Amino acid sequence: MCKEEVERTLVIIKPDAVVRGLIGEIISRFERKGLKIVGMKMMWISRELAEKHYEEHRNKPFFEALVNYITKTPVVVMVVEGRCAIEVVRKMAGATDPKDAEPGTIRGDLALDISDAICNVIHASDSKESAEREISLFFKPEEIFDYPKAADWFYRKGI
């Protein structure tokens, strides 16, 4: 459980969201919540990277479908930062299976079907350890930025 510290987490806007034009909707939800996007890029995930990312699922029956799905179209990967970001982003994402996701969550509002490929519009790291590992798979240190939020500009001197 988070103790109010600032954390970073990985978010992937998955192929089903990309092809449905939901990138902006998903990003805006995080920004409106007050989270900060400190790294972001669109990329086509290679099979090798997908297998590393989903390593924990390697022996599960859906592994092959998951890898095939995440490599089907470009995705948007982001590093999201904020107080208790891992927990906050997971709550905002909603239950993994869209049929179980509450209205108001990203999956509850936007995901259509989990099917064999886990087409649930978004991936969010599930722990601090996962977030650190996943961020390092997708981002070089120089691709993650530290910058002040608007409130820092207006209310703190010396910025």
Rank of each mutant, 00 (worst) to 15 (best):
E64S: 14
A17R: 09
K91Y: 02
V19S: 13
E56C: 07
L35K: 04
F63Y: 14
V88L: 04
V79C: 10
K41R: 14
A50E: 04
I23P: 00
R32C: 00
V38E: 01
M92F: 03
P15M: 11
R47F: 04
E25Q: 14
F30V: 06
A50Y: 04
T96Y: 07
T96M: 12
P74W: 04
H57F: 14
R20N: 11
T73A: 13
S46M: 06
V88E: 05
H53W: 07
K36V: 14
P15W: 05
V76F: 04
I26G: 01
K33T: 06
G94L: 06
L35G: 01
E51Y: 05
S28F: 02
A85P: 09
V79P: 01
E81W: 01
S28I: 00
M40C: 12
V18D: 02
F62M: 10
K52E: 15
K52Y: 05
A17E: 04
G21I: 12
I26N: 00
A93K: 04
K60V: 02
T73Y: 09
I37T: 13
S46H: 05
K33H: 10
A85Y: 03
V67A: 10
K60I: 03
V80C: 09
K36N: 13
V80W: 02
R83C: 03
R83G: 01
F63H: 10
R83V: 15
G24K: 11
A17D: 05
T96H: 10
E87H: 11
C84K: 11
E87M: 05
M40G: 02
V76K: 08
P15H: 08
P61I: 15
L35C: 05
F62S: 09
V80K: 10
G34C: 11
G24W: 05
P61E: 12
K41A: 09
H57R: 13
W44G: 05
I45V: 15
E48D: 14
I86C: 07
I23N: 07
M43W: 00
M78A: 14
M40R: 09
P15K: 13
R58I: 12
G21Y: 04
I23L: 08
V89F: 03
H53F: 15
E51I: 09
